[in-house]
Amino acid sequence: MDDEARLARALGAPAAPKRDAAFTLGVMREAERQRFRRAWLLSLLRTAGVAAAGAALAVPLMGWAPGNLAALQNGLLTAGSLLALVSFARIMSQRLSIAAR
């Protein structure tokens, strides 16, 4: 056998195994793991952002609240009412859309 043929045969020796379902499964598992990690990091960043904003608001509020208790009470009541109104509207719209189907 000449050298060209030897090289062709050695290069042609199968390097990849037959199609392997375990490899495909491994790829999909790893992709899912990375997607979960990205989603977890995003949610962590979002929570940290909200917490930082809350803390930034709380600090001046602590100084202002003792001298303005009535205004604080009014504010809390208004916010609570708004929240209740929005929640009620959402529940009603969900029920109406279910009933319309």
Partner: peptide
């Protein structure tokens, strides 16, 4: 797609 191309890529 992974299934179809894995042999060439791994090779």
């Amino acid at each position: 797609l992974v299934d179809a191309h894995q042999q060439a890529v791994r090779g």
